[in-house]
């Protein structure tokens, strides 16, 4: 578990970052147009392509396909993943039984199963949703299990001293302490879901952002490809910023979360 402190950057850091970005863009523009004008996207080129690409029907349909598949896959993966995490966290024999498989699968890149998945489920949308759901299931299960298992200091004793009945224990102790971990699971799942979606689209040639980027790049529309990449990155950044805010909201006492 790496520890990530969630602090807003201080005001004076912002100026430094802006300067760095401007310098980087300048170097990129000059180098791109000087050495490889037809192979590299350039900032000016990307800017010129931005509006036409974002409003093109090919891009919008690709974006829609990917976003719908990711949302559907996230729901299908995160809901059972969180439920499984709660059970794994609280039921000792289930945890002992499942831990080797869960950690093994968790460590394996989901990309590895895509070729097989396309054969089992076909070169269609089902495969994409299944790969996304699987990518989302594991981080949700692992993170929620951690949260359900470890109550904050002394709280387990508190429950027993107060003779809290089993049902109230789950409701008043386990669920609230697992909640921030469940959100942290979704936080990780979002990133993995986007990677999974792009990977299936590349490999199975499904309509979506991944394929849009691939096709654009192959037809030497580098600036257009870059717009696709930027949108994909932006989706990830926005989603993760959202889940991070949510963690801070539901667990303001927690300075750290899983990744």
């Amino acid at each position: 578990m790496t520890v990530l402190t969630m602090k807003a950057p201080a005001g004076r850091d912002v100026l430094g970052k802006v300067v760095a970005v401007v310098v980087l863009l300048g170097v990129w523009q000059v180098a791109g147009s000087a050495f490889l004008p037809d192979y590299l996207p350039t900032p000016v080129g990307v800017l010129a392509e931005l509006v036409p690409t974002l409003t093109s029907s090919a891009f919008l349909s690709a974006l829609g396909e990917t976003v719908v598949a990711v949302l559907l896959g996230l729901v299908l993966g995160c809901v059972p993943g969180t439920a499984a995490g709660l059970l794994i966290g609280r039921i000792t024999w289930l945890r002992q039984l499942s831990t080797p498989y869960i950690s093994g699968l968790y460590a394996m890149p989901m990309l590895a199963i895509v070729p097989m998945a396309t054969i089992w489920f076909g070169y269609d949308d089902t495969t994409r949703v299944i790969v996304i759901a699987l990518s989302a299931f594991l981080p949700c299960a692992v993170s929620t299990a951690d949260g359900a298992r470890s109550l904050p200091a002394n709280l387990g004793d508190v429950a027993r001293v107060l003779n809290v009945p089993r049902s109230r224990f789950v409701l008043d102790f386990v669920l609230p302490s697992a909640l921030p971990f469940a959100v942290a699971g979704v936080h990780i799942a979002v990133g993995r879901a986007l990677v999974g979606a792009a990977a299936v689209e590349f490999l199975a040639n499904l309509d979506g952002l991944g394929t849009f980027i691939l096709t654009s790049a192959r037809s030497f529309a580098q600036n257009q490809a870059f717009v696709g990449v930027a949108v994909l990155a932006l989706l990830g950044v926005l989603a993760r910023a959202g889940t991070e805010r949510l963690i801070r909201r539901v667990a303001p006492w927690q300075q750290t979360h899983q990744d």
């Binding site: 904050p152 200091a153 002394n154 027993r160 003779n163 008043d172 539901v250 667990a251 006492w253 927690q254």
Partner: peptide, 28 residues
């Protein structure tokens, strides 16, 4: 098991981090 009327105070407080002072005290 803990008999009725036995209270315990813990070295690390054992508070519900997600409850206010009021809600912590009111819980029992």
């Amino acid at each position: 098991r803990t008999p009725e009327g036995v209270g315990m105070v813990f070295q690390h407080f054992g508070l519900f981090p997600w409850k206010t002072v009021e809600a912590n005290v009111a819980y029992p």
